[in-house]
Amino acid sequence: MKSGKWFKLYIAVFLVFLYAPALLLPVFAFNDSSIVSFPLKGFTLNWFNVLWETEALHEATKNSLLIAVSTAIISTSLGILAARASSRYKFRGQKAVMGFIMIPLVLPEIIVGVSLLVVIVQMGFDLSLWTIVLGHVLICTPFCVAILSSAFLNLDQSLEEASFDLGQTKLATFWLVTMPLVLPGVVSSMLISFTISLDEFIIAFFLAGTEPTLPVYIWGQLRFPQKLPSLMALGTILLILSLTLLATAEYFRRRSARKTGIEDAGGFL
């Protein structure tokens, strides 16, 4: 029993380590001091007011939202095609093809950023928000494929066969039977890729033209000590936003698991 106690203690210490930055974020966001350090001074909402008044931040947020929505739609579409192909059909070279599509998962992001930058510059294109979308779709697609593959694999094929037997075409079956069943997986995939894109910095930093994304803007501000408390407020808002999106994604993922009648195995990734 004694070893079990030590084990629990370790888990508790680990969770403190894991959550330390996330817990400090709101602490400093509401702290009435222009220096981000202890001891705490008092409660204020001032840093949130600063955010509403910063025009550049609003522009960066709009850019990031545009990129994240585009990325979510494109990478989920590409994910649906690949996941459907790999779960429904067997074809030669399948493992190699799927492995290739999943590579960005283990590739350092700097490599993705640098290589896209080289191609775009060589071809004479200008860097813009769309060049960032190209990079983000590349790194989000593997996550979408992973989520959607499990949705498609859990699908009971006899339902589709029943639809064929009742005279529906392939396309109609896909829209009327398959899609509604995997829809929670699709929603979950879109939310995850949206969240990844919204927070991605390394690739965006290489591929951003004159218009910054939210993380690129934050990076520029980190140099100025007087901006730090308002960045903490911004971080708090982003944290709450991410958590809401993820909780929604998790809800849909579980619903997808329930709908297809499979015991929940847990975890997105």
Binding site: L15, L18, Y19, A20, P21, A22, L24, L25, T195, D199, E200, F201, P215, I218, W219, L222, L231, M232, G235, L238, L239, S242, L243, L246, E250, G266, G267, F268, L269
Partner: peptide, 17 residues
Amino acid sequence: FLITIPFWTSYLMRIFL
């Protein structure tokens, strides 16, 4: 789910903190 949550805190903020 609990273990993956901190991963979704803003990347730059996490490092800065």
